[in-house]
């Protein structure tokens, strides 16, 4: 039984259908990440769950209870706003204490819990500052502390770390993950950073134009994208038009395809392609269009006569120069089993 269930949520703003029959289920104590391009409805979905958006149709169920018609202040759903929404007339400590004061928690307990929450986000030294005097990242951490201090059963985080530097982001991710596990919070988390999605979440839902396109464990979505859209959204991927002949992919017959002969699309990750010497043989033939050494790896773009060049990531060896631009090469899949064959291509995106 999932703890949070959004069932068939539809919502239009005027003529624009922002949520189009969106369903999400999250198990108790797990983290679900929403991934999707800007404007696809992620914030609107969270706002529906928090009670700020009234869905045109569909149900919101939390802990087995239908809360679709419950006002937001009776939902006990923690929410970290994309825009922070800190109270400018209250200092940091009072912002964090707000929910406790409303609940008439005793003065002593309030102080103790606020101090702990501020410690968690490393802002103890800023307790008596007003939000206008904080940096973006500090404001964001106050917003997180303000939601966490109530230890809600359900926590919604709308891009909570996007204003933080890489180091702080990582430590906050780890702290948040620990807290979520300790308290048993069920959370939905919006991010544009797939690395973050991979680190933080038990499951990932990829959204597209108001619908969920695919839900699964992060690695499953990475390995087995169901559509070209998902493949392009999680990690980088080459989506190539191919021909299927006798259950094999035409340019590289090492790749098996369990579908009828005809046109199809092949999803293959850049790191799953390797450059070999030119000459007769299976694979994609082309010339090196770009070579960028990136430290541990070299990124190639290989022109193979398709709309998009093939992207290849190869391990770099010290002292070994990258393949020269313009030189003819042949590209093959390293692990044929890791390739995915789809019926539909990126045109339908």
């Amino acid at each position: 039984m999932s703890h949070i269930a959004l069932q068939d949520i539809a919502k239009s703003f005027g003529p624009v259908r922002v949520l189009d029959g969106c369903s999400v289920a999250v198990d108790k104590g797990t983290v679900m990440t929403l991934l999707g391009p800007s404007g696809c409805g992620k914030t609107t979905l969270l706002r529906t769950l928090a009670g700020f958006v009234e869905p045109d149709s569909g149900r919101v169920v939390v802990g087995g209870r239908d809360i679709t018609d419950l006002p937001p202040n009776r939902r006990q759903v923690g929410y970290v706003f994309q825009s922070y929404a800190l109270f400018p007339h209250l200092d940091v400590a009072a912002n964090v204490a707000y929910g406790l004061r409303v609940r008439r928690v005793s003065q002593a307990e309030t102080q103790a819990r606020v101090r702990k929450a501020l410690d968690l986000v490393s802002l103890s030294a800023y307790a008596d500052r007003y939000p206008a005097r904080l940096s973006g990242g500090q404001q964001q951490r106050v917003a997180i502390a303000r939601a966490l201090v109530l230890e809600p059963e359900v926590l919604l985080l709308d891009e909570p770390f996007n204003a933080l530097d890489a180091k702080l982001r990582l430590s906050m991710q780890i702290e948040l993950r620990k807290l979520i596990e300790r308290v048993g919070i069920t959370s939905i988390f919006v991010t544009h950073d797939q690395q973050e999605a991979m680190t933080l979440s038990d499951r990932v839902a990829v959204m597209r134009a108001g619908r969920i396109e695919q839900v699964g464990a992060p690695i499953d979505i990475y390995d087995r994208p169901r559509t070209a859209y998902v493949a392009a959204f999680i990690g980088r991927a080459n989506v190539l038009p191919v021909d299927i002949r006798g259950g094999r992919v035409a340019p590289d017959p090492a790749i098996a395809a369990a579908r009828a002969d005809g046109a199809a699309w092949l999803v293959v990750r850049p790191e799953n392609l390797a450059i070999e010497n030119a000459g007769e043989g299976p694979g994609w033939h082309g010339t090196v269009a770009f070579a960028t050494p990136q430290g541990a790896t070299i990124e190639y773009e290989i022109a193979v006569g398709m709309a998009e060049p093939l992207r290849v990531v190869a391990l770099r060896k010290v002292g070994e120069p990258p393949a020269a631009v313009g030189s003819p090469v042949r590209v093959r899949a390293v692990d044929p089993a890791a390739c995915v064959v789809l019926g539909e291509g990126p045109d339908s995106v």
Partner: peptide
């Protein structure tokens, strides 16, 4: 949004 935040905090 501030009023929403307040409602959300109970």
């Amino acid at each position: 949004r501030l009023e929403e935040a307040s409602l959300n905090l109970g």
